[in-house]
Design a protein around this nucleic acid. Structure first.
Lengths: 143, 143
DNA sequence: ACTAAATTAGTTGTACACAACTAAATTGCA
DNA sequence: TGCAATTTAGTTGTGTACAACTAATTTAGT
C-alpha cells in the first residue's frame, strides 16, 4: 500500500484549505460592506462594467452558472446594490447594472487588496510568481 | 482610482477558481466511489486512522467544525462507510471508525492521486515546489 | 415561413461551510 | 465537595455550488 493517499501530499487539499482560509480572512473586512466573499468577487467584475453586463458574461468571468448566480444576484438586488433588467433586443438576456449604492461601495473597498496582501506575508515578486504558477495550473486543468 | 480591484489581479480569485476546478476534476472519479469531494478528503484521514478518531481530531486535520462534519459524517454513516460511537470514558467524544466497506474503498481509490497528478501537467519537482509555496502561505495566513 | 436546435435565466434538490446557538459531560479551582 | 468554566457534538439558519431540469426566446436550416 503506497502512501499516495496521505492528506498532506494532496495539492487539492492545500487549495481547498487555502480557499477557506482566504474566505475567512476576507469575511470580517467584507462584513463592513455587508458583502459575502462570492458577492465581493461579483462586485469586482461589476465595478469594471458599470454600463451593465449579462448574467452569462458575468458567469463566464466568475466561472459560475445561473444556478448559483441567479439567487446570489437576487440577494444583491434586494440589498439595493444592483438592478436586473431583461434586455429588450433579446428577451433571454438579463442585464446586471450596479445602482449608485453599488458603485459607491467601490470607495469602501479600495483598501481591501492592500490589506489582504499584507497578511499573505509575500513580497510583490513572490506574489506575481505564485499567480503565474496558479494561472498555468488553471490553464492546464481547464483545457 | 487604482486598478487593485481587478479580478485578474486577485490571488484569492485564483484560489477560489482552482478549488472549484479541482472539485470538478475529482467529481467524476469520485462518483464511481459514491463519494463527494469533502467526503473523499475525510476518507483520506480515516484511512490513516482505522483504529478510530474523534470528530474533533478529524475536524482539526480537515480544518472543519462540527457544524459541517456532523451532517457529513451522518451521511457517510448512512452509506455504511463508518460508525459513530460515543466514547465510554468521555461521553462528550464521538469516535469515527471505518467499516469494512469504508476500509475496502481505499483499494478503489489508490489510482486517483496519480491520475489527478497527470491532469495537472506538472512535473514532480514543480508540484513539490508549488506545495511548499502553498504551505508557506497557509502558515502565514493561519498564524 | 416553419420548425428543430441552441441559447439564456431561472428553479429544484442535494451537499457543503460556517456563525451562532444548545445540550451534555468533564475539568479545575475556591 | 460544589460549581463555574471548558470541552465536545450537534442543531438551526443563511449562503453558496452544482447537477438536472424547465421555460421562454432566438437562430438556423430547409
Amino acid at each position: 500500500m503506497s502512501d499516495n493517499l496521505l492528506l498532506e501530499k494532496q495539492l487539492c487539499f492545500r487549495l481547498y484549505s487555502l480557499n477557506k482560509l482566504m474566505c475567512r480572512l476576507y469575511a470580517p473586512v467584507l462584513k463592513e460592506l455587508a458583502l459575502t466573499y462570492p458577492q465581493y468577487l461579483a462586485m469586482l467584475v461589476l465595478w469594471q462594467n458599470t454600463a451593465g453586463i449579462s448574467v452569462k458574461d458575468l458567469g463566464n468571468q466568475l466561472d459560475l452558472d445561473s444556478g448559483t448566480l441567479s439567487p446570489l444576484l437576487k440577494r444583491m438586488e434586494s440589498q439595493g446594490l444592483l438592478t436586473r433588467i431583461r434586455q429588450s433586443t433579446d428577451e433571454r438576456v438579463v442585464i446586471i447594472k450596479l445602482t449608485k449604492k453599488g458603485i459607491g461601495l467601490q470607495q469602501s473597498a479600495e483598501h481591501i487588496p492592500g490589506e489582504m496582501f499584507a497578511v499573505t506575508g509575500l513580497t510583490p515578486d513572490k506574489l506575481q510568481h505564485l499567480n503565474q504558477e496558479l494561472d498555468q495550473l488553471i490553464a492546464n486543468i481547464s483545457d
